[in-house]
């Protein structure tokens, strides 16, 4: 049985671990509120843009001359998986789940005979994906330098993706990120981003709308923006999900630490009592022997 001193040491170490997990939980809760607020604030732009792109795409016939972002390259051989992870750990299975979804999708595509490439956003997805697909990582984006990935980052990522697309490095791109359902549930989501799936909107009043310049030019200009917005939205969702997952994971960790402390304390008290009893018995036995 562990000595009293050892037990005391363990109790103290678990106590300090609990302090850390508790602090992290509270930080995550505060950050989650902020992340949710900014996700909320981003919604009007995204919905408006989706409406406009949807109604424009409904008017323009997809053909030879339409923008490649909408029509695609005509092939679907090379698939790019854009995997958005977080930079920090301590958030339970959040990153593992996203990576798992990405690998599942990759294997599915490989089974269909497609070529799969990866573009990794965030630090935590790099190691596990590199381990399984060492040669398939096309590019990476580092978000460790900024506190919260924002629109600037979404812009930079999109520009890089567009450059790769223009260079013919891939035909279809999917975005994989953690969709925020609630603090308890984050859903790894796979979503096609290139060619741009046109949002379905009912063409509103049917009024004659004038375009300046013409529809095709506007659409060509709006598609990259739409892509940026989608990425931006995904990054925001990811941040919210990460904080939610972190909060839940840290709550569990704190509770576990509490239970462990309780158990260890009981053990400590018992062994102390046992030591005292033994001592007493020895003294009494000694006194009686005289």
């Amino acid at each position: 049985m562990a000595s009293l001193k050892e037990l005391k040491g363990r109790i103290n170490s678990v106590k300090s671990t609990q302090k850390i997990t508790k602090a992290k939980q509270m930080v995550a809760a505060a950050k989650l509120r902020k992340a949710q607020a900014s996700a909320e604030a981003a919604r009007p732009y995204a919905t408006r843009l989706a409406e406009v792109v949807g109604s424009l795409a409904g008017r323009v016939l997809v053909g030879e001359s339409s923008p490649r972002l909408l029509a695609g390259t005509g092939k679907s051989q090379v698939h790019l998986l854009v995997v958005a992870n977080s930079d920090r750990g301590l958030c339970g299975a959040f990153n593992a789940n996203i990576v798992k979804a990405a690998k599942l999708k990759a294997h599915e595509l490989l089974a269909e005979g497609k070529t799969v490439l990866f573009y990794l956003v965030g630090r935590k997805g790099r190691a596990p994906i590199r381990r399984d697909f060492p040669k398939a990582v096309l590019g990476m984006f580092d978000t460790t330098q900024v506190r919260e990935p924002g629109f600037t980052e979404a812009e930079a990522i999109t520009n890089e993706l567009l450059a790769l697309f223009e260079a013919g490095k891939f035909d279809v791109a999917h975005l994989i990120y953690g969709k925020f359902k609630s603090a308890l549930v984050q859903e790894p989501t796979v979503q096609q981003i290139v060619p741009v799936p046109t949002p379905k909107v009912a063409v509103s009043d049917g009024a004659v709308v004038e375009y300046e310049p013409d529809e095709e030019t506007i659409l060509a200009e709006l598609l990259p923006r739409y892509l940026r917005t989608q990425l931006f939205g995904a990054l925001l969702e990811n941040v919210a999900s990460e904080q939610g997952a972190s909060m839940t994971a840290m709550d569990n960790a704190t509770r576990n630490a509490g239970e462990l402390i309780k158990k260890l304390t009981i053990q400590y008290n018992r062994s102390r009592q046992a030591a005292i009893t033994t001592e007493l018995v020895e003294i009494i036995a000694g006194a009686e022997a005289l």
């Binding site: 406009v52 424009l56 709308v209 004038e210 300046e212 310049p213 506007i218 709006l222």
Partner: peptide, 19 residues
């Protein structure tokens, strides 16, 4: 400031889309 020139919008403007 539209791409093809400035335009002013008052109430009751016809439906119009521009970069």
């Amino acid at each position: 400031p539209g791409t093809e020139g400035e335009f002013g919008v008052l109430e009751g403007h016809a439906p119009f889309t521009a970069t």
